[in-house]
Simulated assay, not measured.
Amino acid sequence: MSYADLTFTQWNDQPDGVARRTAQGIADRHGLTPVGLKDTVYAGRSHRVALFDRNGMRFALVPGGRPTLGYGAARFEPVPEQVASYAESASEYGLPPLREYVDAMTSPVRMAEVPAMLIAVEAFNPCQVPRSGASREVPYDAAMAGLARIGLRTTTADEWEWACGAGATTLFRWGDDNANDGYPVDYQTGPHRQRNLWGLAIGQDPYMHEVTTERTIVCGGDGGGATCGGSGFFLGWLTLATAYRDEGFGQWFASEDGYADEILTRPVISLS
């Protein structure tokens, strides 16, 4: 069998004994150490998490399927605090109506084919992987080469969204609301700091943005621009939306002028 065909429903419907054998089969086929299975609940949804170790790097099983990705702001029902926060930002920066802005800053609604895969629990800076000889690679190319040297790759944009939201249809993976008296970095606890449904630490800090296989698509943050610039609490939280897309930031980050102390990726082990 191909473990890449394993769907969310198939995985969660397996009896515990079968699930353990499935996890062991994945580990054996890919030279991994199974860490264990555990049941988790996130934002009112439950899931069985399978964890694996690869040379000290922890991976979680992310089942596949044909999910709907992206976000359509027509279904967004902001609470009064979100409306008020955005109104202040819109007045200061000349922004369009709230739903129009959310639509512009999130990826379009679409269907995607996503295989089951193993995804790193924590983001990773592959530029730290040793390499021999001098290199003139730009940071993005160096990061991708670093992953390749250890037999990994980063996520596609679709895979990142699926990994982050785990099929949630809300603006954020935990719902549509956000704290209204601070930015994400002001809170060390809360739904954004918790491991998500798959068991991943992802989309927790807007400063910790992650690159994808598409050079200009950056996910999970905006480099801290909205927070550092004091753009308003709702705009600061919006950068953690599952489908968040800042095209301008992505294009700058991918350009010769783009700068980063580190480039974070979400390593993937493709299943066979």
Results as ranks from 00 to 15, higher is better:
124 F>I: 10
48 R>E: 14
124 F>G: 01
25 G>H: 06
34 P>Q: 07
197 L>W: 05
3 Y>Q: 05
18 V>K: 10
98 L>N: 06
198 W>E: 05
136 R>G: 15
177 D>F: 03
93 Y>R: 07
205 D>N: 14
240 L>V: 04
240 L>I: 06
143 A>L: 06
35 V>H: 04
100 E>H: 03
11 W>F: 12
135 S>D: 15
243 A>E: 03
78 P>Y: 05
57 M>A: 14
49 V>P: 00
159 E>S: 06
44 G>E: 09
230 G>S: 05
162 W>I: 08
191 P>F: 08
81 E>D: 15
43 A>H: 02
164 C>R: 00
201 A>S: 14
224 G>R: 00
216 T>I: 09
11 W>A: 07
44 G>L: 08
153 R>L: 11
111 M>T: 13
29 R>V: 14
103 D>P: 02
129 V>A: 03
50 A>Y: 03
60 A>C: 14
197 L>Y: 06
215 R>P: 05
130 P>I: 08
261 D>L: 12
153 R>M: 13
17 G>T: 11
193 R>S: 14
207 Y>K: 05
95 L>N: 04
164 C>H: 11
109 V>E: 14
105 M>A: 13
14 Q>P: 04
250 G>R: 00
69 L>C: 11
64 G>M: 05
98 L>P: 04
194 Q>V: 09
217 I>Q: 01
259 Y>C: 10
124 F>N: 01
173 R>S: 10
221 G>K: 00
50 A>L: 09
38 K>E: 15
44 G>K: 03
140 Y>H: 14
192 H>Y: 08
105 M>Y: 12
149 R>P: 07
177 D>H: 05
247 E>V: 14
191 P>S: 10
49 V>T: 11
46 S>A: 15
251 Q>N: 13
119 I>H: 01
119 I>N: 03
51 L>Y: 14
167 G>A: 13
159 E>F: 06
83 V>F: 07
90 A>E: 05
34 P>C: 08
205 D>P: 03
56 G>K: 00
33 T>K: 11
226 A>C: 13
262 E>W: 10
65 G>P: 03
214 E>Y: 03
120 A>W: 00
94 G>N: 06
160 W>D: 04
93 Y>K: 06
3 Y>G: 01
